[in-house]
């Protein structure tokens, strides 16, 4: 045949950015749905979403006391550390775990309504941000009980959280597309996230291990630098606890943000139109 078949524009950059931009324009929709998700979880309960805050407080206090005892640390050091670590980890793991399920769980909507795929991702990140905000109440209460040496550098937590959101979005988008095609990746992701919780300094204090009198422990602790989650936790935990910022954490996070989005955009360009076939 001499005439080329008509070219579909499904796999072009313009359609990729149209999806992301079109989803963004529907913020009334996902903004509403994100709130709804939160309220939904605690519907018919008397206290409602305050349960998010309460359960975080209970976990952090219990683990703080437990690990302060186990490691022989001062509770005033251990508890704020665990609390902030837990809050940040909650956001990260929420984005990863729900990201691995984001399109599968929205199968009905995807098959019945022609909305940009990114709507589901924005909804997820927004919901996780709202959970994060609820948990920050515990942080504020903690500041009263265990005052931290905060200065204006605490404001660095704001761009740090913005970076966390930007990364949550690409992780959810990428994992969402891939897990829709390969369903085995969902349980694999769950296992990895669980493992990463122990490998990331959340309950154990990174600097204590680095400065350990035992040479071999200090040596091994350095390996934690290879854990990308460490950098994400550190850029936001350090300002919130009034500790010094380290440039390398920010650089690593920025590099991951750029590379992650680049890879995600390529995958989305290639497979965006296939998701409705796969779900």
């Amino acid at each position: 045949m001499s005439t080329a078949p008509p070219q579909s524009d499904s796999r072009t950059w313009s359609r990729t950015f149209e999806d992301l931009g079109g989803g963004w324009r529907q913020r009334q929709l996902w903004g509403h749905l994100g709130w709804q998700d939160i309220k939904q979880r605690y519907r018919r309960s008397v206290l409602g979403p305050i349960w998010i805050t309460i359960s975080m407080a209970v976990t952090a206090v219990a683990l703080g006391i437990l690990y302060a005892g186990l490691f022989g640390n001062d509770l005033a050091v251990q508890l704020p550390y665990i609390l902030v670590g837990f809050i940040v980890w909650g956001f990260i793991s929420g984005c990863v775990l729900e990201g691995a399920d984001v399109f599968i769980s929205n199968e009905g909507l995807i098959k019945h309504l022609p909305a940009p795929l990114s709507v589901h991702v924005y909804r997820l990140v927004w919901r996780q941000s709202l959970l994060f905000a609820h948990n920050m109440i515990v942080y504020l209460v903690m500041l009263v009980i265990f005052p931290q040496p905060l200065s204006w550098t605490v404001l660095a937590a704001i761009p740090a959280f913005a970076l966390l959101m930007a990364n949550g979005a690409w992780v959810a988008l990428l994992l969402g597309v891939v897990t829709t095609r390969f369903r085995d990746l969902t349980p694999i992701t769950q296992s990895i996230v669980q493992l990463m919780f122990f490998l990331t300094p959340i309950v154990w204090i990174y600097e204590d291990l680095l400065n350990s009198a035992n040479e071999s422990i200090a040596e091994r602790a350095r390996l934690a630098e290879f854990n990308p989650f460490l950098h994400f936790v550190e850029i936001i935990r350090r300002p919130l606890l009034g500790q010094d910022q380290l440039l390398r954490y920010w650089i690593v996070v920025l590099v991951i943000t750029v590379i992650g989005w680049a890879v995600t955009l390529f995958v989305v360009r290639r497979y965006r139109s296939r998701v409705s076939y796969w779900v």
């Binding site: 078949p5 008509p6 070219q7 579909s8 524009d9 499904s10 995807i110 098959k111 019945h112 309504l113 022609p114 139109s273 409705s276 076939y277």
Partner: peptide
């Protein structure tokens, strides 16, 4: 669903 844009054609255009 094709006309709605939910399924983008695997071949051809819509």
């Amino acid at each position: 669903r094709l006309l709605a844009g939910i399924y983008e054609p695997t071949r051809g255009v819509a």
